[in-house]
């Protein structure tokens, strides 16, 4: 199943029965995750859609795009409920854990500084405020991603220069800044389900785990290619990395040499335990189903692949 242009993000809803996908083809698709049947397409963005998320009851979908807007959609009918106009492209959107706020990460461009805009959400009405509750600014390089920490107390942001910042967002305060935790652009940041730690991926060919409140490094996973995305499996001690050579660097048509596989690592031991093929170009985004029984990957090739694990996967015991 797919889009007509490269995928930018794939994401499951909380129940795991729905999969949202966004791409550079300006569309947002909603699918049944178990069989890949498309439920609907949300049309309205005028540029690449960079990010998607939905609330816990799967009634509302938010998207952020290169048309300098974030949009709120009624999931069931596809009706566009609200449009927020931002100064620049919106690279990442995410509902808070209590669904009362949405964070939006904007790009730095044309004289506008990047920011993390936080808007309050009123679920009793489609009308939403256009005034952000808070705007967080970077004291370092551009933001590349951000995520809510546990109990919505914190927001962790990643930067283009490989650093991380921990915000007490409500008080607009920088609690910690961890410089150069990666040697390249941080391409993705995904929280563990309880928000206590998170994984980052980078063009420096590594993915790393960090504790939320301290930004202390916990684990590191090494690859032989730039990593665009990293996800953690909720039931097994595994992390999945996706990446591959950028199209500008690919000098061969071999998908093997392009390193376009999903790579599995043991979360605690840090060693690579397996790979899954399926894409003909770099993997841009990976999400793991909340029940841990499948994962989805979105590639530069325009395809979304949903991988269901074999029964062996659930019974496999690491030897120690």
């Amino acid at each position: 199943m797919g889009h007509t242009r490269p995928l930018t993000q794939v994401k499951y809803n909380v129940d795991g029965d729905l999969l949202m996908t966004v791409a550079k083809d300006k569309t947002v698709n909603l699918w049944y995750s178990h069989n890949g049947e498309r439920i609907g397409t949300y049309e309205g963005h005028q540029g690449s859609v960079w990010s998607v998320d939905c609330n816990k009851t799967s009634t509302l979908i938010v998207t952020g795009a290169a048309d300098n807007t974030a949009r709120l959609w009624h999931a069931e009918t596809g009706r566009m409920l609200h449009t927020w106009e931002l100064p620049t492209a919106v690279k990442r959107v995410e509902f808070s854990r209590d669904d009362r706020h949405i964070l939006m990460v904007t790009e730095e461009r044309m004289g506008h500084k990047c920011g993390i805009y936080i808007f309050a959400i009123d679920i009793s009405t489609p009308e939403q405020s256009n005034e952000p509750v808070v705007i967080l600014r970077s004291s370092s390089a551009k933001f590349t991603a951000a995520a809510w920490g546990y109990l919505d107390k914190y927001i962790v942001a990643s930067h283009e220069n490989g650093s991380l910042t921990l915000f007490d967002w409500a008080n607009e305060e920088v609690l910690r800044h961890a410089p150069a935790v990666h040697e390249g652009v941080i391409t993705d940041l995904q929280m563990w389900k309880d928000g206590s730690y998170f994984i980052t991926s980078s063009k420096d060919k590594t993915a790393r785990l960090f504790e939320t409140t301290t930004l202390d490094p916990i684990k590191m996973y090494k690859a032989d290619t730039g990593i665009n995305t990293a996800a953690m499996t909720p039931t097994q001690d595994l992390v999945i990395l996706g990446g591959g050579q950028d199209s500008s660097e690919v000098t061969t048509t071999s998908s093997r040499q392009g390193k376009f596989e999903s790579r599995f690592y043991h979360k605690v031991f840090e060693d690579e335990v397996g790979r899954v093929k399926g894409h003909f170009g770099p993997i841009n985004t990976i999400a793991v189903a909340p029940d841990g029984k499948s994962f989805a990957s979105g590639g530069e090739d325009g395809y979304v692949r949903v991988h269901h694990y074999d029964p062996d996967y659930f019974t496999f015991q690491y030897d120690y």
């Binding site: 009851t57 009634t59 209590d98 679920i123 546990y150």
Partner: peptide
């Protein structure tokens, strides 16, 4: 970490923090 989370969650709940209840009957009205 679990001990720290448990303690902070208690505090947050006491001060009014609520996570959304995920239930099928909670329909958003357009």
């Amino acid at each position: 970490v679990d001990a720290m989370l448990a303690s902070e969650t208690d505090e947050a709940l006491q001060s009014g923090y609520k996570l959304p209840i995920v239930a099928d009957d909670q329909e958003f009205v357009v």
